[in-house]
């Protein structure tokens, strides 16, 4: 998809910067410019498109849709709506209260809360840029599966008592869902593009910078030995390291790309990404306002284990993906 860019950046490095592509420096510099431009193009397009779709699914509407489904269908719908409903960790508390108050089962609510941050437009765009359609789509599909399974398990454990009592007493007011014009939606989408890029560019640049270093210099055989698909502990270590790294999540993708090129298992890299987005410390601190530590623990454990399993799955089918 980006062969033209690859070629142009190659010309730039060889003829303008006068660095041979055969050297470590040339290969690193090429990776840096190529990746930066590619990711910015894709991020702009993807965030705009997805934000536009999202403007049709405010959480209030999502809640109304979910009230109609029960059982596993409810979990599946919640995960799917988690993809299209705009979500940021600062809204997770009002969203949680709104769902619970509407009588949506706890398990269904968690299906939404698990999938929503994993499958976000920025991660999708960068995955698309780095690994292509196949992996980006499989990432979305596994994000949904993790949400559905996690939600079903949490639902089956009957943890309603682990929600803070006051949540059940809150009365949620009725609000009219705002009618947006085409112009409003475009503005919303453009605003989102600016907002997200402003928020992540620094992490992205750092990530691409580290990626470029790895690309130019890291010894492939060593990495493949310790973090390759054959090391059974690599996935677990990746997930544990991923949890506290929330805001750097998107910056980690270019690092992951470079690592995969050097032989690190693709499942290991994807688990790392999912852990950084799904299990963020700031979100848990916010959720603590509405749920008790035990339920937070269950949420982290189930989601973490699901992500680790996804890692092994991807490592297992890696040969088919690349």
């Amino acid at each position: 998809m980006f062969d033209w860019l690859d070629y142009l950046v190659g010309l730039f490095v060889e003829n303008v910067l006068k660095i041979s592509m055969e050297t470590h420096l040339g290969s690193g510099v090429h990776f840096f410019f190529y990746d930066t431009i590619k990711i910015i193009i894709l991020l702009g397009i993807m965030i705009f498109a997805i934000s536009y779709i999202r403007s049709y699914f405010p959480p209030e509407r999502t809640k109304k849709i979910l009230e109609r489904f029960s059982g596993i269908t409810g979990n599946i719908m919640a995960s799917l709506l988690g993809i299209v409903t705009p979500f940021c960790s600062c809204s997770s508390v009002p969203l949680f209260i709104g769902f619970v108050e509407a009588g949506i089962p706890l398990g269904v609510t968690f299906s939404f809360l698990i999938t929503s941050p994993i499958v976000n437009e920025a991660a999708f765009a960068i995955l698309l840029a780095s690994f292509g359609w196949k992996i980006a789509l499989i990432y979305v599909a596994t994000g949904v599966v993790v949400g559905v399974v996690g939600g079903i398990l949490i639902g089956a454990m009957k943890l309603e008592g682990e929600v803070e009592e006051y949540v059940y007493q809150i009365k949620v007011g009725e609000v009219d869902i705002e009618e947006m014009t085409h112009k409003d939606r475009v503005e919303f989408a453009v605003g989102n593009v600016k907002d997200i890029i402003k928020r992540i560019w620094i992490f992205l640049m750092i990530g691409i910078g580290i990626g470029a270093l790895i690309h130019g210099w890291a010894p492939a055989p060593l990495l493949a030995k310790y973090a390759g698909p054959d090391n059974p502990f690599a996935v677990i270590v990746a997930v544990i390291f991923g949890i506290p790294l929330y805001s750097n999540a998107l910056g980690t993708i270019p690092i992951a790309e470079a690592l995969i090129n050097k032989g690190v298992g693709i499942g290991t890299a994807l688990s790392f990404m999912m852990a950084t987005t799904a299990l963020s410390l700031p979100e848990m601190i916010l959720l603590r306002k509405v749920i008790k530590p035990k339920l937070i623990g269950v949420f982290v454990a189930i989601t973490g284990i699901a992500i680790i399993l996804v890692g092994y799955l991807f490592n297992g089918i890696a040969h088919w993906l690349i």
Binding site: P58, P59, E60, K63, P86, C90, S91, V93, P94, L95, I97, G98, E101, Y166, I170, K171, V172, G173, E174, V175, D176, E178, F188, G191, D195, K289, V290
Partner: peptide, 28 residues
């Protein structure tokens, strides 16, 4: 305060309320 925020029916912050009526939510 979440109790008060929820009383307006708002699930996506920030929201703008003028004289008790929700005008806009989830957008800056």
């Amino acid at each position: 305060d979440f109790k008060e925020i929820m009383a307006y029916g708002v699930m996506k912050t920030p929201a703008l309320v003028v004289d008790g009526k929700v005008k806009v939510m989830g957008r800056v």
